[in-house]
Amino acid sequence: MNGRDAIDSAAASRRRALNGGGRATLITGGAGFVGANLAHRLLSEGQRVLVFDNLSRPGVERNLAWLQQTHPHGLDVMVADVRDADAVERAVARADHVFHFAAQVAVTTSLDDPREDFAVNALGTLNVLEAARAQPVPPSLVMTSTNKVYGGLDDVALELDGQRYGPADADIAAHGIAETRPLDFHSPYGCSKGTADQYVRDYARSYGLRTVVFRMSCIYGWRQFGTEDQGWVAHFLLRALAGEPITLFGDGRQVRDILFVDDLVDAFLRARRGIDALAGRVFNIGGGPGNVVSLLELIDMIGALEGHRPETAHEGWRTGDQRYYVSDTRAFQAATGWRPAVDARQGVERLHGWLREMRAQPVPQAALRQPASRRPTLAVTGR
């Protein structure tokens, strides 16, 4: 055992001694699409997981029921809200690592109610950080931020290339948008997530917490029940499977790099393993230049899978909608060796098949029940 391993082992032993052993990985927003996939991976590896979620987003009850059925041991659930500082502190006190995903996730919702958006994203994140800082040995933390912290990228000159926009700058075209890009919060959602992003980064500098921020592009995959406002790849597929028209905001040539959720979970686990070396850093995470798709190109992919092109309608551009965003993931690749393994076409095919299967299955009764109260409730489902 080398010196670094000895220090890490001693720290882990001290955490167990201080907290009575049996530490869990806490996932806030753990019943959501990303959280459920990460929880499933950890539980499959025999790790303890505490899912913390207020179950407010449609579809998450279904994910939680699936986790409880699939993993009768090792999973604990706390039905609570990150705006409840006391509940957050009780959850964090049980954790040796925190994945902080709980958030208000839609630009449109933030425009309708910026105060609630701020309370969930900014204040909720501060609650998690303060709870971590209060522990005798603070848990490490990985937080999911967003590419919206870079604003509309209006100064990035674009060229039209068939059904997609592309940057005129050769370096951006080859690699995407890097973490050195100046922050330019746009929309209340961009402001609240950007605030949280900077707090998480600064708590590593100011208080020595071991934190990492992922500024994420478009994530898609299993357990995603997308809506018009968030989760557009799954939303397009669900509309097509239901034979319903798909609304494109703008001209449909907007470009994103899409990342399959299995690859994102791999990135999370690499960040956790390397947290001591990565603490205080921010990384752009997405499919990168090799997994770029425009809205119109996704429509064509779905048409090939369904045997006919879905009907589409157009509406005006939405606030904060970037015409081009592709993640430059070289910094995280250099730090950890990670890179995406699932290409865009393969991933869309997988999600299409899974959603088709889900449409044919009855929704479990447990997934149809709303919690009786939003007061913090601990449902212990495994020991």
Rank of each mutant, 00 (worst) to 15 (best):
V51G: 00
T312I: 13
F118I: 07
V380W: 09
G190Q: 01
F118N: 02
L278Q: 00
I27Q: 02
R273A: 09
Y165V: 01
E311D: 12
V213A: 10
A344Q: 08
V293R: 07
V149Q: 01
A65L: 13
A95K: 08
N284V: 07
D155L: 01
R210E: 07
P58K: 04
A85T: 10
V88D: 02
P362T: 03
P310D: 05
V282L: 01
A196H: 06
R23C: 11
Q104C: 14
S56T: 10
L75G: 04
H175R: 15
G243D: 12
E61H: 10
V255R: 15
S192G: 14
A12H: 02
L248P: 07
Y325S: 03
R41W: 06
W354A: 14
A11L: 11
L209G: 07
C218F: 07
R181E: 15
D263Y: 03
D266V: 12
D343P: 10
A379F: 09
A12E: 12
F332M: 06
A334W: 00
T144E: 15
G226A: 05
L264I: 14
A95D: 02
A196W: 15
R16S: 14
G152S: 09
D229L: 12
F283E: 00
H73L: 11
Y220L: 07
I7K: 09
V105E: 07
V213Y: 01
H352M: 08
G35M: 05
D5F: 04
V34R: 08
A313W: 08
N291S: 11
I299G: 05
D81N: 13
R253I: 01
H71V: 06
P136C: 13
I246C: 04
R239Y: 06
S9P: 12
V292A: 10
A267S: 06
N19C: 11
Q333A: 12
V49Q: 05
L18M: 05
F236A: 15
A12T: 10
R309N: 01
A279E: 00
V326F: 01
A379D: 14
A95M: 05
V107W: 02
T109I: 14
Q224S: 13
E306K: 13
I275M: 00
A39Y: 02
L259M: 08
A103L: 09
D117C: 12
Q163C: 14
A271L: 02
H40V: 01
A6P: 03
H186M: 13
T211F: 03
A360F: 05
L264T: 05
W222I: 15
R115M: 06
A173E: 00
R16L: 11
L259K: 09
G30V: 06
G20S: 02
A11N: 08
L269F: 01
G221E: 05
V156A: 11
R133M: 12
E61C: 03
Y189K: 09
T125I: 04
S192T: 14
H308Q: 15
E228W: 09
T336S: 02
I275K: 00
A277D: 02
S9M: 13
E228M: 06
T70S: 12
H73G: 08
A36L: 06
S56Q: 03
V213C: 09
A102V: 11
T312S: 03
